[in-house]
């Protein structure tokens, strides 16, 4: 029986639960109406306060007037380039939490964007699950200095130290099992497609592997460990699509 270490004191609030990030303000700068609709819908499901801008000018106006915790920025905008928006943010000293979301997937834009202070670069098409993972990762790093734990029922996950506890008892997972759990936990209650999971855990090139059946064996191991430790979460397979983590 291994009990959690002394620094974990559940009675005091020296950590911030990720569920608290719900009230975060997010600006989505995207000109494609359907794309914008998808992003806004799925972000609102996470209880974020979401605002939108569909043109370069609207984006400049919003960023000048308000502060956001995270900005999703498209590069191709009517009236100007997303990189210029980034430039403007840099002048205002507000580049914190910018994720470039671009269909161009061009190396030049990525390099330029990251050099201008953007936090991350997410090429289109992306999976909704990946969008949430990136947004949460940015919020965690920027707003809580990475000092936060994720609580799911009787399960506690430390995303930075790669540790998991069930009822204060450490659950030892291998690297891939941990990433699967974290990714599913980040998208708690939502459907995560096999492809999204494979790309996130196994890397960029795995999407060419044509067949994601090998994921199943990892999920099986993870489920067994969770069951052995009596974690009150469940990973449900959604036939033909992927998996969903939920607290029954």
């Amino acid at each position: 029986m291994r009990f959690c270490r002394g620094f974990l004191n559940f009675s005091s609030i020296d950590y911030v639960l990720i569920t608290k990030i719900a009230a975060m303000k997010i600006l989505v700068i995207e000109d494609e109406p359907d794309m914008l609709d998808n992003m806004v819908r799925s972000l609102r499901k996470e209880m974020y306060l979401v605002e939108t801008a569909v043109t370069y000018d609207a984006a400049i106006e919003k960023i000048s007037l308000y502060n956001y915790d995270c900005i999703l920025l498209d590069i191709n905008l009517p009236g100007g380039s997303g990189l210029d928006v980034l430039n403007q943010l840099k002048k205002l000293n507000k580049t914190e939490g910018v994720i470039i979301v671009s269909a161009k997937n061009s190396l030049d834009d990525k390099v330029a964007g990251l050099e201008l202070g953007a936090d991350d670069y997410l090429p289109k098409p992306f999976h909704i699950a990946e969008l949430h993972a990136r947004v949460k990762s940015v919020l965690r790093r920027r707003k809580f200095d990475g000092n936060n734990l994720l609580k799911l029922g009787n399960l506690l996950v430390d995303p930075e130290k790669h540790q998991v506890w069930v009822d204060e008892k450490e659950l030892v997972l291998n690297r891939k099992e941990f990433y699967i759990l974290l990714y599913l936990a980040t998208n708690q209650g939502r459907l995560v497609s096999k492809t999204a999971l494979a790309e996130h855990v196994w890397g960029d090139y795995i999407d060419e592997a044509d067949n994601f059946e090998f994921i199943y064996s990892q999920i099986k191991n993870l489920r067994k460990k969770l069951k052995d430790y009596r974690a009150d979460i469940e990973i449900q397979a959604i036939y033909g699509i992927g998996y969903k983590l939920f607290i029954p």
Binding site: E32, D34, M35, N38, M39, S42, A103, K124, P125, F126, H127, I128, A129, L191, S193
Partner: peptide, 8 residues
């Protein structure tokens, strides 16, 4: 991207 996300 739009189609995939809508389906998701």
């Amino acid at each position: 991207a739009i189609s995939l996300n809508k389906l998701e």
